[in-house]
Nucleic acid binder design. Structure first.
Lengths: 239, 239
DNA sequence: GGACCCAATTTCCTATAGGATGTTGTTTGG
DNA sequence: CCAAACAACATCCTATAGGAAATTGGGTCC
């Protein structure tokens, strides 16, 4: 069988090292951007055709995505994208985020290098540029920057395990990032700077508090998304 | 090609629903029990032959195990089992466990059904039977019971996300469960009962405190494992 | 008209084959 | 005697083919 020449892949970027890795990133993006709608069935063969690869790497990528919580697999029925977060799951998510990220902020304030504090401060300051841009572009830039800030703090906290846990939580959150409001961008920015200031000052209690109230405010800001569109409630989850 | 008749699989149990699932559980056990030594290379083809399956499901199972953190994958070099926890990683693990499991214990004390409190109490009492048994059997039974107790509290806490995070941490821990001391079984039992009592009484602060000190004590009990055998230090992790 | 049963189709699941790449052992030159 | 370059090997990675099960649609019976 002749190795087919690599066609112009329109959905996946230039391959990094392994094909599976690229496919993984591609499908992840497809799920994040709701090009594969939440709660929908995922056809392996169709996906493989769409990405111009064989089903094998697709299957492998889906196995990883299942462990990440972005898709579910019912034993003999195939994969489905994870449904949108319910109100209960949403509240749970922010409760856990407050616990974990409050801890990372405090740890970062206690033991972070001078260079690390500098980076956090710079990242918080850079957030101002978000005002520019249009629609989707601006939206994506905002969420990406927010994620970077939170991950930076997690990195500086010096606990790889805590950082991993938080990263996993964030991927759950992004499942409905498309419905996030950008209105509160300015507030977000202010709160970020307050957190950064507390960390730079080395005040652990203040950093934890600032992070917790930031997440509390963020939670309030995102709440309208639940009224914005009628979530299908996914009646197909027959346990 | 004729579907080969299912030979007497000596390593994997009677298949549940999908072959991949069985292979996943089999390999997981192989890693947990150090039949595949930590830090060792994992040969996909050899593993497939050993389990009497084709490489495809093995590959898929390994992808899931990588997301679980039990194996690592270097782009064009194959899979390796995750090395044993270093002292630093071990400390980090117990720090995070204190944070997360302290929270679950407190939550369980606050809002748990009467039936749930009953189950926790029963589980803590059942721990006494561990004294019986011989060597490996007794050891496995002890760790399994300990894991069940902690998972039960996480379940009752009412936070699925928190429970998932903890489960993931535990799988990291089990990576050197073979070196765990059973000497402190009685102490463990007492501490468990203290936690259970606080939860049943509905005292959140006490439950959190009891859990945290239990983990602190458990950490001390497990420390000798680092002197017990010279961990190879795995010089092959060339980043 | 509704519910149940059956059959056709679609889809998943597993096995096999072959090309590309990394790794290792050996040889040769300094 | 050591280091570097080369070649042979092993291994991973991707593509394809075919059997088995579940879902969907239609027909029949009540």
């Amino acid at each position: 069988m002749a190795q087919q020449e690599p066609r112009e892949g329109r959905l996946r970027p230039a391959r990094r090292l392994t094909l599976t890795e690229d496919v993984y990133e591609s499908i992840k993006t497809l799920v994040m951007d709701h090009i594969l709608p939440p709660g929908e069935r995922v056809n392996i063969d169709a996906l493989a055709r769409e990405l111009d690869v064989s089903p094998t790497p697709v299957r492998e990528a889906l196995a990883r995505l299942e462990a990440d919580g972005l898709v579910r697999k019912r034993p003999l029925s195939g994969y489905t994208t994870t449904p949108l977060l319910s109100r209960t799951e949403f509240d749970d998510l922010f409760d856990v985020r407050q616990l974990l990220e409050g801890a990372t902020a405090g740890r970062a304030a206690t033991h972070a290098s001078a260079e690390a504090r500098q980076r956090i401060s710079a990242e918080a300051a850079a957030s101002i540029d978000v005002e520019a841009g249009d629609g989707y572009r601006r939206h994506a830039a905002f969420t990406a920057l927010d994620a970077r800030f939170h991950d930076l703090i997690a990195e500086v906290s010096g606990s790889p395990l805590l950082r991993d846990s938080i990263t996993r939580l964030h991927s759950h959150l992004h499942l409905h990032r498309l419905y996030f409001p950008v209105a509160g961008a300015a507030d977000t920015n202010t709160e970020h700077q307050r957190i950064a200031a507390a960390i730079v000052a080395g005040d652990a209690a203040a950093a934890t508090g600032a992070m917790r109230s930031h997440l509390s405010a963020a939670r309030e800001r995102h709440l309208p998304a639940f009224d914005q569109l009628p979530v299908p409630a996914t009646p197909r989850d027959s346990a």
